[in-house]
Amino acid sequence: MKQLVLFTLALSACGQAPGGSITLNFPADLITNGILHAAVFESGQCATLSDPVVLAEALVRLSHPANFDARNEHPMTLNAIPAGGDRMVVAVVEQEGTQVCRACSDDVVIKDNNTSTVRLILEGCP
């Protein structure tokens, strides 16, 4: 019986993330100009988006320096998003650890082996 309990405990540990860490050296422009986060959530409605957005709950996320081109645009590509029909896409600008503005689109469809296109408009960003 004792061995059975031990084995069950061992099995329950399967899949748990062992501890680990990595030191990240962010380029200076990430700090000074802010960070543009793009995140895809499994589901959700933009009308009820939390403030601040909990990026850690995203299925897939990507962070770039918050720089925009001459047309005030910043393209980003997010890969390996689990396919689904009601994904929510959020863009957030973070400066000095604070989310200063955001844009959102919901009911986005992600199809297997396909590329979807979404345009988000940030308004009122400092």
């Binding site: 925009f68 005030n72 910043h74 980003m76 390996a80 979807s116 345009r119 940030l122 009122g124």
Partner: peptide
């Protein structure tokens, strides 16, 4: 497994 797809996202900053 439903598979995976990609997303081309364009973020526009409209002051």
């Amino acid at each position: 497994d439903p598979g995976t797809g990609n997303l081309e996202l364009t973020v526009e900053n409209r002051p």
